[in-house]
Amino acid sequence: MTFSWTRVGAILRKELRDYRRNRFVIFSMSALPLLFIVLTMIQLFTIKVSSSPRLNDRIGISMLYLLIIPTMVPSALTAYSVVGEREQGTLEPVLITPIRREEFLVGKALAAFAPTLVIAYTLFGVFLGAAELFAQPAVVSAIFERSHVLVQLLYTPLLAGWSIWMGIGISARSTDVRAAQQLAVFASLPPLGLVALLSFNVIPASVGLALGLAAGLLVVDGFGWRAVAALFDRERLITGGRA
């Protein structure tokens, strides 16, 4: 039996319908992004164009806030994805259909990935629009610098991908939703830390280095679903680990 996008679509549709009616998910998808866009705006409008290095630091912080959104939002969603279904008793009926574990995992991942990208890119657009309209010209030209925009566009899906696979992997091996959520948030942070070091020039930033790191993250994300698929053991999930 080959990989079926119909089955992936069934999981994806079900997840998105479920998200829309789940208060916790609505809260996670709105409160965190709202907090970080507010912090970003505060940074934006309190920047004084006195010294160039200070300006770059402040813009680096703003950009970092924006990258926290695609890192944190999916980890809250995906940490629930397997262990939550198991706790609800909905996992077994799904696993007794012809669905393959890869299809199940890709469906779950896309359900977290799509809204995360929409939220992250929309807020980045809001940030750019607000900067264009209200920030000082020197700040605007620094923000619209090609490397900043490139980092946002490039790292948003890559960081989301990392968080999603870490979240699903942890969820597949956890027995408790809360523990899975806490672990998933911690596990999503390392690549963000790397981006932070670049943003604050602790590691001297260059377009080449940023692209290199992005390529590395892309490879990790690409293999992420295979690694998570290996952790996804039907028997263990059904019997609660006694197999």
Binding site: G9, A10, I11, K14, R17, D18, R21, N22, P98, I99
Partner: peptide
């Protein structure tokens, strides 16, 4: 949180 119909539609998709 899904309706009866939505539950069944999901599984109809899983059975293709």
């Amino acid at each position: 949180r899904l309706t009866v119909e939505e539950n069944l539609e999901c599984f109809a998709g899983l059975y293709e």
